[in-house]
Simulated assay, not measured.
Amino acid sequence: MPVVDAVLSAFSTLVHPLQLLVAWLLAGFHHLGAAAGLDPAGGPAWALAIVGLVVVVRLALVPLVVVQVRALRGVQAIQPELRRLRDRYVGRTDAASRQALQREQAELMRTSGANPLLGCLPALVQAPVLFALFATVQGLSRHEPVGALTGALVRQADAATVLGAPLSGVLWGSGHGPTIAVTAAMIVLMGLTQLVTQRITATRNTSPASLEGNPLARQQQTVLLWVLPVLVAVPGLHVPVGVLLYWLTSTVWSLGQQLVVLRVLPNPGSAADRARTERLARRAARG
């Protein structure tokens, strides 16, 4: 479709500077792997480069993650007030009442500092990085140099394999046994990691007060718990092995990050918050 192609072309032009940065980081970590004794033409050196890219990107996102966690805490904290506010307008369907409810909800959000949109920041920022990596890995099979990834490095990367699967290989329509096995395994691992992360969030980091009398919130939890892993897995059928490795590593990072959040910044009233309070009390008693 001409319109879609034009949009993708425009987006590719916008993320080209980011693609140059991705290429520079990949080349840099690849050189580190080679200096450490890994075969420069082997899969482990390039896998290390992709994992290194994940670490750099996710460390850069830590400040945004802190903003995200605090924003989501604020949203959960005001759920009882939002519920009482909506209860006041139950049965009032006229335009004036709807507008008044929207104004009061917006004012409550503003005064409390809660902003659900901030919860999407890390994912939105990371999306162009994924696209830049996708374009870079996709260009390997065409031997297209990008910035620090010279023609020689691109040919090396194209010949490199992860457990027998080339970095530019994809599951859908591949017909190549190792590629199918490796990509399928990574997709399953991503889905399971997502499921565990969402399960931990739902059971350990959700305040009962935010769910009480709020069937929509419970429904959203169920959707996130079971549907999100599927939505993550489906695009993986068409994603190169190198990008899947980035995605899987980033998903594992998210699980570890959530475990840290549970200990450091749990939602007030959640099971994790109670565990943190008890932990601090025991530490104070010993001190």
Results as ranks from 00 to 15, higher is better:
M1N: 07
V3N: 06
A6E: 13
S9G: 15
T13W: 08
V15M: 01
H16I: 05
L26H: 11
G28H: 14
L32E: 05
A34Y: 11
A35W: 08
A36M: 11
L38M: 13
A49L: 05
I50K: 06
I50H: 07
G52I: 13
V55Y: 04
V57S: 05
V57I: 15
L59A: 09
V62H: 13
L64P: 02
V67R: 12
V67W: 15
L72Q: 09
L72A: 05
L72H: 02
R73L: 01
G74R: 00
G74V: 00
R84W: 06
G91V: 08
R92F: 11
T93G: 07
D94M: 09
R98L: 14
L101T: 03
A106S: 12
L118H: 13
P122T: 00
A123K: 15
V125D: 09
L130K: 11
A135L: 12
Q138M: 07
S141F: 13
A148T: 01
D158E: 11
V162C: 12
V162G: 02
G164F: 12
S168V: 04
G169L: 03
V170F: 12
S174N: 04
G175K: 03
T179E: 06
A181M: 08
V182H: 04
T183Y: 04
T183F: 07
M186W: 02
L189T: 03
G191V: 09
L192N: 06
Q194M: 10
V196C: 06
T197F: 01
Q198K: 01
Q198F: 03
I200M: 14
R204F: 13
S210N: 00
L211C: 03
A217P: 09
R218G: 10
Q219C: 01
P229R: 00
L231A: 10
V232H: 08
A233P: 12
V234L: 15
G236S: 06
P240R: 14
L245H: 02
L248I: 02
Q257L: 07
Q257R: 06
Q257E: 09
V260K: 06
V261Q: 15
V261W: 15
L262V: 12
R263H: 13
N267L: 04
P268I: 01
A272P: 09
R274D: 14
T277F: 14
T277C: 03
T277W: 14
L280C: 13
A281W: 07
R286L: 05
R286W: 03
R286C: 01
G287N: 09
G287R: 11
